[in-house]
Design a protein around this nucleic acid. Structure first.
Length: 172
DNA sequence: GTATTGATCTTCT
DNA sequence: GAAGATCAATACA
């Protein structure tokens, strides 16, 4: 339900989150900051105190955006997986030519591309331009579904993916 | 709608 | 050298 706002390349885009995944600490073996991996150049942002972005490249071609939520030195983050276009749809379409509106922000790689997010935003604060979060409508607990996270093998059974039940913008 | 597979490159072993 | 918090094109049903 929270809003993600970006001001990148001179355009503002606004999206409302409908799907996220939690990566809950060093004991979470699916996390890039799991204890067995330790701190590296890539995951450094996850070890910062909460409120900044963690952006990484996956499969050589897609950016993924996380909101870091842990305390300093205790790595945790929320992967932003899907959202509903709210404002700046033209700019999103310009970044995803030919895509129907409902697919613009469906999936973490698509979300980053439509919002203009890339490595330049890694480790940047999420409470000011060019990329920030804003509280949105409160989603009733009954409307929130949860299940296993996508695309992982370790700790795959942990039900840490959350989405708005029935929302057409949810991935998969 | 589901299943399969190639694209592409950073990171870590 | 292999795997990876993915996507889209293709081939079906």
């Amino acid at each position: 339900g929270a809003f993600v706002v970006s001001e990148i390349g001179g355009v503002r885009t606004v999206a409302q989150l409908v799907e996220t995944e939690a990566y809950v600490g060093p004991h979470d073996d699916a996390s890039h900051a799991a204890e067995r991996l330790g701190r590296t150049a890539r995951n450094a942002a996850m070890f910062a105190s909460g409120g900044c972005a963690y952006v990484y490249l996956i499969y050589g071609m897609h950016w993924c955006l996380n909101a870091v939520t842990g305390a300093a030195g205790y790595p945790a983050a929320v992967l932003l997986r899907a959202a509903r276009p709210v404002w700046g749809v033209e700019a999103m379409v310009a970044r995803r030519p030919g895509r129907p509106e409902r697919e613009l922000l469906r999936g973490p790689g698509n979300l980053c591309r439509a919002l203009g997010v890339d490595r330049a935003l890694d480790h940047r604060p999420l409470d000011r331009p060019p990329l920030w979060l804003s509280p949105g409508a409160e989603i009733p607990a009954a409307s929130i579904a949860s299940g296993p996270r996508i695309g992982i093998v370790r700790a795959a059974e942990w039900p840490l993916r959350f989405w708005i039940r029935g929302d057409p913008h949810v991935s998969r």
